[in-house]
């Protein structure tokens, strides 16, 4: 049925009363507290603004945290990568440190939206939006990332395994809290990882399936010393394939065990039938392909290619 022009979501304008630009974290938290739930944090705004235009959310004020100091760094500290949540996808994708020490994340960030979106959208925002197909969230989940959240009661740290709650819902309340840090172990020797993506086009499209794979090899025993598999969108949140990971852990590296783990991963996930993103059956079949391929490629990147 045809809709009148003023009912179409894109004909409507975004509405809020105040746009606040704090220059310190304390000030930002105080502003949020003052609005008592009716304000919302905005960083790059590439998710928040379309959401407000679609009237899927309503706010009295936006608190723009993009000018807060020391929140966009990309650094290594000991064995850990410390990522400022305000780092844009364009910068993370181009960072030599991330390409060397967290390759799946660099790859994932290079797929988010368009170049214009990547220039302003932040990796912190990608997490807070809580979408199951988010191209930065899926690799960060495999990397065992932990986020730091500042709120009225002080700071707390949450691993991503406790962070994603449902579609669009995470452990952070964007009307009261601010993500201040993202950290995860840097990939080192005998470790390798990759990111794979299935989509209808090569640009400007959410994935039908995304898969981040990491392995750590015990070089003496030629066994899996560590495995991480994360997938999206096959559930309401990005998903870790814990059963398949456990199957591989400590086992001798080989094609058969990889095929078994891939089969298990495929049976564990239940993507929706979608006219846009493929049927459940198709995507389950592709999960098997991606897990098998991802593990094989990750092993090669770790310097232990399957013979």
């Amino acid at each position: 049925m045809a809709q009148p022009f003023n009912k179409l979501h894109w004909s409507r304008f975004v509405e809020y009363d105040q746009y606040l630009v704090p220059d310190s974290l304390d000030q930002a938290l105080a502003m949020l507290a003052e609005f008592n739930g009716s304000a919302r944090v905005i960083a790059g705004g590439t998710d928040v603004v379309p959401e407000l235009r679609g009237r899927r959310a309503k706010v009295a004020a936006l608190v723009d945290i993009s000018r807060l100091p020391d929140m966009d760094g990309i650094e290594q500290e000991g064995g850990f990568i410390r990522l400022g949540p305000l780092a844009t996808h364009a910068r993370v994708a181009a960072s030599q440190l991330i390409r060397d020490k967290a390759a799946p994340l660099a790859e994932g960030c290079s797929w988010v939206g368009s170049p214009q979106i990547r220039n302003v959208a932040t990796v912190g925002g990608n997490l807070v939006s809580g979408q199951p197909a988010a191209d930065a969230s899926v690799p960060l989940f495999a990397l065992d990332a932990e986020v730091t959240i500042a709120g009225p009661q002080g700071e707390r740290r949450t691993p991503l395994s406790d962070f994603f709650l449902d579609v669009g819902k995470t452990a952070i309340d964007p009307s009261r809290e601010i993500m201040t840090g993202i950290s995860f172990p840097a990939l080192g020797e005998n470790q390798g990882g990759c990111y794979q993506r299935l989509a209808q086009r090569k640009a400007l499209v959410l994935p039908m399936l995304a898969c981040a794979t990491l392995v750590k090899v015990d070089p003496q025993n030629k066994t899996f010393a560590g495995v991480a598999l994360s997938l999206g969108p096959v559930a309401p949140t990005p998903m870790r394939e814990r059963v398949a990971e456990q199957m591989l852990l400590g086992q001798p590296i080989g094609k058969e065990i990889i095929a078994k783990a891939a089969e298990s991963a495929s049976s564990q996930c239940s993507p929706r039938d979608s006219l846009l993103r493929g049927s459940c059956d198709y995507r389950q079949a592709m999960v098997r392909v991606f897990v098998e391929r991802g593990l094989t490629r990750s092993l090669a990147l770790a310097g232990h290619a399957l013979s």
Partner: peptide
């Protein structure tokens, strides 16, 4: 840097 001006609050350009 190219950006989409339709979803960028004008005050971000300050």
């Amino acid at each position: 840097m190219p950006v989409n001006s339709c979803i960028l609050p004008a005050l971000k350009a300050a």
